[in-house]
Design a protein around this nucleic acid. Structure first.
Lengths: 340, 340
DNA sequence: CGATGGCTTGACAACGTTGTCAAGCATTGG
DNA sequence: CCAATGCTTGACAACGTTGTCAAGCCATCG
């Protein structure tokens, strides 16, 4: 900026005025300064700008998600980005990979760069650094997961209700022996989905055997192996409920590889590209990641604009999309010897 | 920081020393300062830090991609993030949505925030602001697309070679009448893929009719409509080549909806989740987005470390993955009246 | 016992920008 | 012709941090 000023023969304050399009600079000087700027390739330094204007907003929000590789989250980013763009904001997005260490690092980075607000998919009930930030008054919106004992804005899918819907759908199609595959229950959403499954089964008057519930954190290929193992054991369940999208992919692979895709019912929490192209189409309770992202961002920008209403808690639910796999009825063959 | 200093009864320089873990501070003071820090919830301000240390690196790189909603790019981010994390860097990623205006805005933001380097999927031959930055010496690596007349590091898929492979695969299975559906040829990769298709067809001694080549930029649902239209016209092509992942999804939907999935061959550039679960499985020439991202990031960090070797040009190719749809032979029924 | 050296600590400038204020100049009105 | 007014421009401080240097203190050695 100094260079620009001396080249244009003005003080650097005048350069600042031109850059910020402040009124009251003679057209002559404006031109000289602009020429010098493009000649020297000068770009203003936002860090210094924001530093001087401490207390004002910096035009960036942070989004701490679990894993960009998961399409659920990349669609969420898209929703957030869209709203942020309308407000002229930049989104800093980073993956925590679901552990507190990663989350803390990410949040530290966000804070160190002075984002104006944070949207987070928290990795657990222990909020770590994020908790301190909330106490300090940084606007935070939680997305998808809901830590206990913290009152901040929240947007999430109706994990419990969705799981109930999915389970009832299977039950309505005659299933009693349903296997549940879900993420580790340390994850809030996974816990709720499992609870929804159990509650719906209880309502249906069915006891859920321990070995019919499998939870853990695995890659798609591992889930395929695990589920294959469960399907090979006799008696196999008549239906399976995969409660997360990676698991659904693994489950679908397992079913197809074993030639059971038309025999064992399958329902999924969260939708997937191509779920309607597979034979049979995969019945799902979808989430609306794009919408979750947009709504979370809207809430955040309301806070940034100074809204001080009590925390909002938006829980979005969706009906079952029946595509075939969830409507398979239990085979007539199945009459478990053990239960006799 | 001032508050922390006065609370701990030391100068703020000492606080700085503690924060940066500089040696030579008495344990007593270290403790007092740390207590004050956690009491007051103080977080250092990276903007000021980097400002003071102008010229040094800021620990952030920017990634300008086309659309986070496209899984190809979200996997690329993952690769970049992984490498960046190892180097202790933050990745700022943003979508340009394929137009220069969006790209310019994004790059301006990156520059204003003083990222140390940029990985970009350029939106065309006109580089806009990015061009200025390259001239100014900012380390830049291009990913997936290769603008003309610019010598910078580049990592991309072998669009031409892959398209040749895909086309030859169809030809080898007896096809002569192949329809090509691709992105608008303003996009570098799309142009190369089309060229690969044409070259391979020429080698096979087949003329490609104009109406067998459709290019443009559309959403998945629109592609399904467009392709459905083409498949209904008689004589329909015996095989289709969809040269981008959104188009592939549209094409697969069209084929399935018309009941032609087992009759008309289909090959795709770029792989897709579930492509192996559909019946028939979709034959593809895959890209390796995760690898592209990692390699681009590696190149960038080499530059950041001061490497001044001539620009590298890494072109990654992959063999066809045959899954069924690409191995369908032209139906015996087909004997075009027109060609007789 | 005094000089020397090392270790801890603090004062101050600087990074690039903007807000505040005052100075300089021309223009207008009396 | 002089005073008052308005507009343009510049000088300077400040934002929060770190690098540089000097000052103060204690211990060691001759």
């Amino acid at each position: 900026m100094r260079d620009v000023a001396s080249r244009a023969g003005v003080s650097f304050k005048t350069v600042s005025r031109v850059v910020n399009r402040e009124p009251g600079v003679s057209p002559d000087l404006v031109k000289r300064v602009k020429d010098a700027i493009s000649l020297l390739g000068y770009r203003p330094d936002d860090r210094a700008r924001h530093l001087r204007q401490s207390g004002r907003q910096t035009g960036a929000i942070g989004f701490a998600l679990v894993d960009v590789g998961n399409q659920f989250f990349s669609w969420t980013i898209r929703g957030i980005e869209e709203v942020a763009r309308q407000h002229g904001y930049l989104v800093l997005a980073g993956s925590t990979y679901g552990n507190l260490v990663g989350q803390d690092q990410l949040i530290e980075t966000f804070v160190a760069r002075r984002v104006d607000g944070i949207i987070a998919v928290p990795s657990g009930n222990d909020l770590g650094v994020l908790g301190h930030e909330i106490e300090r008054g940084t606007p935070v919106v939680f997305l998808d997961l809901e830590p206990e004992h913290v009152a901040v804005d929240l947007v999430r899918s109706d994990h419990h209700g969705g799981a109930v819907l999915a389970t009832k759908h299977l039950v309505a199609h005659g299933h009693r022996d349903i296997a549940f595959f879900g993420d580790t229950t340390e994850i809030f959403s996974a816990k709720l989905r499992l609870a929804g499954f159990r509650d719906a089964m209880r309502d249906a008057g069915v006891d859920v055997a321990d070995q019919r519930v499998v939870t853990g954190q695995h890659a798609t290929a591992e889930w395929q192996e695990i589920i294959t193992g469960y399907l090979k054991v006799s008696p196999a369940p008549t239906a399976i409920f995969s409660a997360q999208n990676f698991i659904t992919v693994g489950a679908a692979h397992a079913l197809h590889a074993l030639g059971l895709a038309h025999k064992i019912a399958h329902i999924s929490f969260d939708d997937i590209d191509f779920a309607d192209l597979v034979q049979p189409g995969i019945t799902v309770v979808p989430q609306q990641p794009w919408d979750l992202g947009r709504q979370a961002a809207e809430l955040l920008f309301q806070r940034l604009a100074g809204a001080d209403a009590p925390p909002v808690r938006e829980i979005i639910s969706s009906p079952v999309i029946a595509r075939g796999s969830g409507e398979i009825r239990p085979g007539p063959v199945r009459r478990s010897k053990r239960s006799a």
